[in-house]
Design a protein around this nucleic acid. Structure first.
Lengths: 148, 148
DNA sequence: GTCGATCGATTACACTTGTGATCGAATTGA
DNA sequence: TCAATTCGATCACAAGTGTAATCGATCGAC
């Protein structure tokens, strides 16, 4: 069957993010970083970090297109691909799923797990503490607390 | 460097944890919780939460045995299975892999992601903040700071 | 002692994933 | 003009996964 299917959709967003496998994730990350890119761009970007043949990268791109995670437009003989799913949404979805599966949905045990093994730098510890304090401050402002 | 490699292991313990798939993880979780259990125990434990036929659960158990994640001993006609990999290690390994893949190895962005979407309860926020403070305190004691 | 219920063992089967190779058309350098 | 290169399209193929069903032995109820 010829290329009847590969016309880019006009609709920009899709509602539910498709499942993205580990290897595909590496590729998506590059597209999220680059915004738009040809297959070759991504091959070059991954060079050195990933020992993938160009054809492998192309296969992963093709699957991401099939899944609706990437779109593309034609430019001369080649395609320029671009993300069709937001990084934030995918990242959040993946995190949610992971934390649910492994930690019963709670983040604190994950943090504890990392702290136990000293997986965080002091700078990161500080950053996280600030994030938490900020969040707590905002919460306490928006939701009136009863103070004893 | 703090956090050097922990104590050398005994020769028999499995050093690298096997890959555990999503469905298998659900089963392992029950074994970690129960300590020891027959297939039927786990089927019953999962009843209501997971719409799996008993044969499906048995298949997952068999694969976990093949992978070395479960062991068993015979008891009459049936088997009593038990974990052969520590939950902590599997959980940590899975977390490490996930955070590396999705957040470039840093935990803070994951936390930020959850906070943005208000995925944490106030109690959890507080718990995490305490965890962080404790860790920071311990660090500052073990690694002396340059004096003001 | 026979029959159905019940174990674990073995088999099934489609889908996904990782990792490419091949093919035909277009492009380019000589 | 023609051979080599280079796209994307299509195909390949083994391993892993989700989701069971069937088979052969055994145990318990009559």
């Amino acid at each position: 069957m010829p290329a009847a299917k590969p016309t880019p959709r006009s609709a920009e967003e899709i509602e539910t993010v498709p499942p993205i496998s580990d290897a595909e994730w590496v590729v998506m990350t590059e597209f999220w970083r680059l915004g738009e890119a040809t297959a070759k761009d991504v091959v070059q970007a991954l060079e050195g970090r990933q020992a993938w043949k160009p054809k492998t990268v192309q296969s992963l791109i093709n699957r991401l297109v099939q899944k609706g995670a990437l779109g593309f437009r034609q430019q001369g003989r080649e395609y320029v691909y671009l993300p069709r799913v937001e990084e934030d949404r995918c990242v959040h979805e993946a995190s949610r799923t992971f934390v649910d599966r492994v930690f019963g949905g709670k983040l604190a045990p994950l943090l504890a797990c990392f702290l136990e093994r000293q997986e965080c730098t002091p700078a990161e510890l500080e950053e996280m503490r600030k994030l938490l304090e900020l969040q707590q401050k905002q919460l306490s402002q928006s939701a009136p607390e009863h103070q004893p």
